[in-house]
């Protein structure tokens, strides 16, 4: 199944986000080999160039590295992954708080709603 994108934002960024998510939640475990650009692009239904860019970003962010013999592997640096996880979590939280602000709710009200809501 091709991945879904919002075309009003750079697509390589969205691909990057999706792969990072997969790394954070363990779909691509630490130290495991990532599929080749071509394979992953085919899975996602995207242009390999775009996928390549996303992968290059992964490397520059320290979440993956290219090994000459075994291709691209996910980092084993737990700390780095935790950092990235936190960053994404904070972004999501920030978005939530912005949405609550638009509704005119205070920070305390926003927090109490948060405690009540289930993930669905």
């Amino acid at each position: 199944m091709p991945w879904e994108f919002k075309e009003n934002r750079p697509i390589f960024q969205q691909i990057y986000d999706k792969i990072v998510l997969s790394i954070i939640n363990g779909t691509y475990p630490m130290g495991s080999k990532l599929p080749s650009v071509r394979e992953l692009a085919e899975q996602a239904g995207v242009n390999p160039n775009t996928m390549q860019r996303a992968m290059a970003n992964l490397e520059s962010e320290g979440l993956a590295m290219t090994n000459r013999t075994s291709g691209r592997i996910v980092t084993t640096d737990e700390k780095r992954i935790a950092e990235v996880k936190l960053r994404y979590a904070k972004n999501a939280a920030r978005e939530y708080m912005q949405a609550m602000e638009l509704l005119g709710l205070s920070k305390d009200e926003a927090l109490s709603i948060l405690k009540e809501v289930d993930t669905k």
Binding site: S36, V37, R38, E39, A41, P48, Q52, G71
Partner: peptide, 9 residues
């Protein structure tokens, strides 16, 4: 055989 950046031979 060399590889290009798409991982193809």
């Amino acid at each position: 055989m060399s590889e290009n950046s798409f991982g193809e031979k």
